[in-house]
Amino acid sequence: MAMIRFDSVSKRYPEGHEALSRASFEIDEGQMVFLTGHSGAGKSTLLKLVMLMERPSQGQVFVNGQNLRNIGRLKIPFLRRQIGVVFQNHQLLFDRTVFDNVALPLIISGCPHQEIGRRVRAALDKVGLLDKERNNPITLSGGEQQRVGIARAVVNKPPLLLADEPTGNLDPQLAAEVMGLFQQFNQVGVTVLIASHDIALIKSLSYPIMSLKGGQVTRQPATEAEVPFDG
């Protein structure tokens, strides 16, 4: 089954710029896919369409079996709870601890109190920041902040994980560590879509690549045959 399906989707902005032009593609459940393209090619727009931060001008988007056209404004939060998102600028809140930042999605979805502590620590453990739970994120390094953002994205175990330039501000070694984390989540069944223009890093990993050019999506099979790809 497709986790994400775009069916000849166009997105024009009021000022006339067309970010996507009848783009069609599918990402199957459990896949990990990179999305590349020069800046301004529409990578962020594509992710925003998946999260319903934007709506397409034409065409249809399906996420986890739901036609997003049928999801009204009031139901958007429930779609977003199925999607973990990692941002380049990590979007952490500096008025609370690392623990409280990661706990936010659980509190929002009404998770029982005891459960919150358990799951937040599990997520922080996974990204290697269990000892920093009482810190304010502002005291952490860039790489650590990004890992807190990842912990928050996966804490309520979403089936789909989106990342927008997650390694944009990181040096190569930290970037590789962060990519390693995404690979781990993918191995336990999470569908992962990572927008990045770090071609060198992408090429070093053997996952399928979608490139955006002129509003169209073209897929290249995985660089090495070890990851099956049925595009």
Binding site: P77, V85, L93, D95, P105
Partner: peptide, 15 residues
């Protein structure tokens, strides 16, 4: 900032 993040991670209007 907090409102934006809450909306991003699926907070309802009521929340």
């Amino acid at each position: 900032d907090e409102i934006v993040v809450i909306k991003l991670v699926g907070g309802t209007d009521a929340f």
